[in-house]
Every structure is written in C-alpha cells, then in structure tokens.
Write a protein that binds this DNA or RNA. Structure first.
Lengths: 296, 296
DNA sequence: ATAAATAAATACGGAAAACGTATCAATGAC
DNA sequence: GTCATTGATACGTTTTCCGTATTTATTTAT
C-alpha cells in the first residue's frame, strides 16, 4: 500500500467541492495533477470513490465513507503534530516528583503550585520517597526530580538549592522552656532528644546533632522514628524535645510548642535531578525552580 | 505542512528497531534515504524525535509520543481502506427497506434473513410504508428497496418478482362455510366483504374485486380498513368475509378461519428499486432476491 | 594510545515521480 | 447545430527521491 497523504488531502478537497477545477485552485495546483492523483488513489484502493461525468462529480457510497475517514486521518495527524510539539516544549507530558517529608512541609507545595500554574497540561505525579532511596530513584529514571535536603550525591546527579530555613525547637507545652519566646540551642542541653532517623534521613539527623555539638553539648537521643512527622506527636506526648525545620511549625498540635532558636544551622532544601535526563517537562520545572530559588 | 505518509512509515520502523541500517533493510531501502526522510520529518515537525550518536539511537520524549501517534495514524488508514473496500463490495453499509404489511406476512422475513445471513455487517433498516407511498420513497432515495405487491411504477423504478401465492378466504369460525375444507370463489357471492383499502393498497383491492368479478359476482363491500391486518380481526368479529394472501393465515386468531379457495388469482410480491441507485448494499440484496425468487 | 570497526551523515549522479501547458473528448445549454 | 464547460490525456520539464560511494564520529580491541 503506497497511499500518500497528499492523495488524501487532494481527495478531501475534491470531495468538499465536487469540482476538479475549483479543488485544484484551492490546492494551488492545476487540474490535471489532481485528476491523476485521485485516479491513482482509486487505483490503489481498488475502489471507485467518485462518479464522474464531464458535467457532474459526485461521491459513491464508498467515497463518502472514505471522505470521512480521510478527514479524520488528516485531523489526527494535525493533532499528533501539535501534541508532539507541545511535548518537546515541555508543556505536555509527565513529571514524576519524588519528595521527602521535610520538603512536603516547606518548599514542595509552593514550588509545585508555581509549576502547575505555568504548565497546567503537564501531569505531575508526586510520590514520597525516603531520602536514602532518592538517589536510586533518580538514577534509575523512576522519578524525574527529587525535592529534598541535599546529601551525598553520586556523579550524574545535579542539585539546585531553592530554599533555606532555620531549625526551630519543639517542646512539650508544659515544658519550662515553653514559657519563653526565643531560646538558645544550649538551652536544650541535657534534654531528652527525639530525632530524625539516622537510617532514612541521615542528613537531617547529622544536622541536628552537629548543631548541638557546635553549641557545646552532646544531645541525649531518646528516640528515633521512621516517620518524621511523628517527632512532633512524640514531643506532644512529653517524651522529649527536638530541633526540626521551622516550616514544620505549620503542623499545629495541642501539647507541642514550636520556639525560635537563635544561632542554629540552616536547613537547605533543593531539587535534584539526573544530568542525563532530557525530559522537557524537567527542563521547564528546573526553570521554575531557579526562579523560585531566586526570589527566596 | 507537507508531511508524507512514507515519512511516518519510515519513522515507525526506525523507532521500532532504533537502528538506521536494520530499519532500512526492513523497509527495503538503503540507509541514506532513511536518514534523509527522518531528518526531513523532524525538520517539518520542528521537533527532534531521536537522540542520535554514531553508536546509539534512542527516542526523545516527543519521539516516543509521535511514534505512538504515527502507528495509530497508519493503522487508521489501514482500517479506513478495508472498510471502504467492504462498502464498495456491499458487505458494509446501510440498506433501507420499505415494506408493506402484506409483504411482512409473506416474503419479507425469509428474504431479509437470507440477506442478513449473507451480509451480517450490513445494517438493515426496515420501515413499513403504505403501498401508495412506496414509489415516492424510492424515487426520493429515502429507501433503497421496496418489498410489495407490484403496482403502477414510474420510469426509473425496476421490479423483480420474488414470490407468488394464491388468495385464501377468511370467514368467521361460526360461518356456514367454515365447516368445509376448500371452497370456490363463487361461494362467497352475496357475503359482506371486508377488503384492503382502495386508498392505500389499490393493487390488492383491485385484485380481490377482479377475482370476484371473474367468478361472476360483484362483491358487496361492507368495510375497508386502513390497517390491513385488522381485516382478520373484523372477520373474527363476524362482520364479514374476505380474500387475503394465503400467507396471512399465519395470523391465527380465535373467531377467524382461513380456507383454501380454488381458482383464485395469484398474489405476487416483489422487490422494487430505483434504477439509478448504485448502493452496493442494494446490488448485493438484489442478488439475494434473484436467488430467492429462483428457488420459489 | 593507537588501530580497527561500526554506524550515521553527506555528496553526487541517475531514475522515478509530479507538475504544468496544451489538447482532446464528452456533455449539456442556447 | 454550435458553443461553452469540465474532466481526461499527452508530453516536456522540473522536482524529488533513491542508491553508491565517501566522510565523520565513536566505541572496542590490541
């Protein structure tokens, strides 16, 4: 089958006008090639599509059907071209985002909103990943971009910081420190600590411990929990205190009080992606991330 | 947009194999034209579909999408070709059949069954028409073929007989004639007649009256009814007798008895169509009708 | 590190296809 | 009966496309 799209276009115009001369004019060709191409199409189909007389051209039943089909095919190609171009521009497609819980409380929502507003046709697939799993997910191509606290990243992964914030303390509401407004890190010396788990979030874990050591004491770690957000729950139960990213204070919970802390280290969140990933959606997302980081 | 189906076919094969040389072999061309056509396609789309190195060819995100779309378009053309050919052969399409009530009791069911069995994909649209309306419906193209008793037909309409049957008498069950098995037409002389209506079924009306006159009496017409099948109902109520096509005796009804009648005229049923109607479904149907008439 | 091999792109000459002008044939109007 | 209209056909020209040969780049093997 050697049917040509040109033959379909010619036939559709002819079927629309039912006049070889006028159809040829619309197609910006002369009449003879139109006659020939349509005849060739009928030959290839082994179907007579038109009933011709020198005075009148009309479609056969098969011609009417093929007219509809040809229009559908041409329109389908047109939409295929448009959608393909939209995909290359990154306006259409899928962006798989892997985020950590710490990011979910801070930078994730506004960043995703910015991107989704800019590219409403892109399909954003969010999935929570454990920090230690993020690198693998990025390298294997299971996610396009990670949003997380930076950690050791293997060659081939790029990083861009988009957000920094201080740590803050969270203490039980009936704790003596809960009376004041702002505390120092050293005020927490001797308190039982509930920390981010070293196994799944080693970066945040070390940040908190390093912050304490910088201020002259070794934190007494009482609990670690695999679910980061339950740190606040455990504090509210009176089991200890913790240092968490300030954005977690949005999680208002009876029994827990968040306090600003002077002189803490900063928590940084950023986007991580595979350098070899040429997904157009990723490129557009990174533009958003750069702009977002610029105004932070 | 001057995209060519050949370019789609070339691209699909290339995307399937991800190897210019092997794809060219599958397409029975050499490698350079394949490179050129694919490059031309990308040029026309303004989209890079493939990431090439001299060692490795892979699809971009846009290329993966266009691959799917191109396959869909090519498959769509293929089915369009097949269905168009099926339409020309008369295997697919619509056949609009206009039938009269007399035909519905005799020739219509087996003829339609024969046709539907032979062409199960054809869509048969049955509609009852009054005999006097049939010619107009055929000439205007509202129906493709009529099944009816033959009547005056204008030039441009063709007719083919497919079925003949005798008339039979229908009398009330308690009528004196209901005792015997077969009667003569003249036995009905003097009986009140219920006939086919002269206005809507003039041909059958005249057949019955002519049959009586042939046997030496003028029927005393008591009733005519626009609904032909109600003739039997009225006979069952004891209002009179009638001569109807024998096939109507399939309509078993308490109170009415059908009796063979010797020496009646024959009722003929046939198909009627417009000579200029080149519907392939009609052509196939007429072949069925000819075969059906041949074995009757 | 160098050489060989592999794969895609490019150059160029010839073949095939498509187009346009001119013409023919058929049909309907005056 | 003549003319105008319309689609098909003939033929020369232009364009496009293909195939062979070559180039370029990258990977593998020595």
């Amino acid at each position: 089958m050697t049917i040509d799209l040109r033959q379909l276009r010619y036939f559709v115009t002819l079927a629309d006008t039912l006049h070889f001369g006028r159809a040829a004019t619309l197609l910006h060709i002369s009449q003879p090639p139109l006659s020939r191409q349509v005849a060739a199409l009928e030959e290839e189909l082994c179907v007579s599509l038109l009933k011709r007389s020198t005075r009148l051209v009309e479609l056969t039943a098969a011609g009417r059907h093929f007219h509809e089909q040809a229009k559908r095919i041409i329109a389908g190609l047109d939409t295929a071209v448009r959608s393909t171009q939209a995909i290359e521009r990154g306006e259409l497609g899928v962006l798989r985002v892997g985020f950590t819980m710490a990011a979910a409380w801070s930078v994730l929502p506004p960043l995703i909103k910015r991107y989704s507003d800019a590219f409403p046709q892109a399909d954003v697939q969010l999935s929570e990943v454990l920090p230690k799993e993020l690198n693998d997910a990025l390298m294997s191509g299971n996610v396009d971009v990670g949003i997380a606290f930076p950690w050791q990243r293997p060659p081939g992964l790029e990083y861009l910081a988009v957000h920094t914030e201080p740590l803050c303390a969270v203490v039980p509401s009936d704790h003596r420190l809960a009376q004041g407004d702002e505390i120092a890190v050293s005020d927490l010396a001797g308190e039982p600590f509930i920390t981010f788990p070293a196994t799944t979030a080693p970066a945040l874990h070390e940040l908190v411990i390093g912050c304490c050591r910088e201020h002259g004491f070794e934190p007494r770690i009482r609990l670690e929990t695999h679910l980061q957000q339950s740190i606040v729950n455990l504090v509210a139960e009176g089991l200890g205190v913790s240092l968490v990213p300030q954005s977690m204070s949005k999680m208002r919970l009876a029994g827990a009080k968040f306090l600003p802390v002077s002189g803490t280290r900063m928590v940084e969140q950023g986007v991580i992606w595979a350098a070899g990933n040429d997904s157009p959606c990723l490129a557009r997302f990174l533009e958003c991330a750069r702009a977002f980081g610029g105004l932070a």
